[in-house]
Simulated assay, not measured.
Amino acid sequence: MSSTRRHPHVVNVAEIPQTVAEKGTRFAFRRRQLSAESGGEQLGCSHMELPPGKTAWAHHFHCANEEAIFVIAGSGLLRVGDAEVRVGPGDYVALPAGPGAAHQLRNDGAEPLQYLALSTMLPTDITVYPDSGKVGLFAGAAPGGPKERRYLAGFTARPEGGAWFDGERVDG
């Protein structure tokens, strides 16, 4: 594929800069933000890759934004609500806003888990982390949206304060 764009709204996943994140032995991912690179504003889509044994984010739900997952390759264990569900290629997961769809996807396979993470991009959202009791606040841009548009963002909104990973299992 040529690096010359055919159209400003058409991108190829291989040409998008990759973000690599890692925290402890449990959290790690590679992400390519498809919507941001193609001019999307109200619908977010990222190509995600989880290495074996890793998860991208702590168990959480959104109060405003709806999410979805479409598995491309690999397999994983999806914790959604009170259930654990095995997912693999071709599986689509709807994650409406609210506590009933609290979720976390973990790659428990031997190969990288690749999926599309889709979401609405409402600029004001509250993210709740039921395991640790933390709350994330966003205003001006949705989680995953352009940080330069945000005028409020924080994961320390719990009574005793603390950082985003405080209270989360990052190892084991």
Score class of each variant (00 low, 15 high):
residue 105 L to C: 04
residue 87 V to K: 04
residue 42 Q to F: 10
residue 58 A to G: 14
residue 63 C to M: 15
residue 87 V to R: 10
residue 42 Q to E: 05
residue 47 H to R: 07
residue 43 L to G: 09
residue 72 I to R: 06
residue 43 L to V: 15
residue 98 G to L: 02
residue 43 L to F: 07
residue 47 H to G: 07
residue 82 D to R: 12
residue 55 T to I: 11
residue 110 A to I: 07
residue 85 V to E: 11
residue 40 G to S: 00
residue 73 A to P: 03
residue 72 I to E: 13
residue 85 V to D: 05
residue 98 G to I: 05
residue 58 A to K: 08
residue 39 G to V: 00
residue 80 V to W: 08
residue 103 H to G: 03
residue 69 I to C: 10
residue 82 D to C: 07
residue 50 L to W: 09
residue 64 A to V: 14
residue 60 H to V: 01
residue 40 G to Y: 05
residue 59 H to G: 00
residue 72 I to K: 13
residue 60 H to T: 06
residue 39 G to C: 04
residue 50 L to E: 06
residue 106 R to A: 05
residue 109 G to A: 06
residue 52 P to K: 09
residue 68 A to Y: 11
residue 75 S to Y: 01
residue 99 P to H: 04
residue 74 G to W: 03
residue 96 P to G: 00
residue 60 H to M: 01
residue 54 K to Y: 09
residue 67 E to R: 08
residue 57 W to A: 14
residue 100 G to Y: 03
residue 55 T to E: 13
residue 58 A to H: 07
residue 65 N to S: 02
residue 47 H to N: 10
residue 48 M to E: 14
residue 43 L to W: 10
residue 78 L to G: 00
residue 106 R to L: 11
residue 60 H to G: 06
residue 108 D to I: 09
residue 107 N to M: 03
residue 82 D to Q: 15
residue 95 L to M: 06
residue 63 C to A: 13
residue 100 G to R: 15
residue 44 G to S: 11
residue 109 G to N: 13
residue 98 G to C: 04
residue 103 H to K: 02
residue 50 L to H: 02
residue 65 N to V: 01
residue 65 N to E: 08
residue 44 G to H: 08
residue 108 D to H: 07
residue 70 F to S: 10
residue 102 A to W: 03
residue 104 Q to I: 00
residue 96 P to E: 09
residue 42 Q to P: 08
residue 72 I to H: 14
residue 87 V to G: 06
residue 94 A to R: 14
residue 42 Q to L: 12
residue 53 G to Q: 05
residue 93 V to L: 02
residue 94 A to V: 09
residue 43 L to Q: 13
residue 86 R to D: 14
residue 47 H to T: 03
residue 105 L to G: 10
residue 50 L to I: 06
residue 75 S to E: 15
residue 60 H to R: 01
residue 55 T to Y: 02
residue 47 H to Q: 13
residue 49 E to T: 13
residue 111 E to D: 15
residue 59 H to L: 15
residue 111 E to A: 15
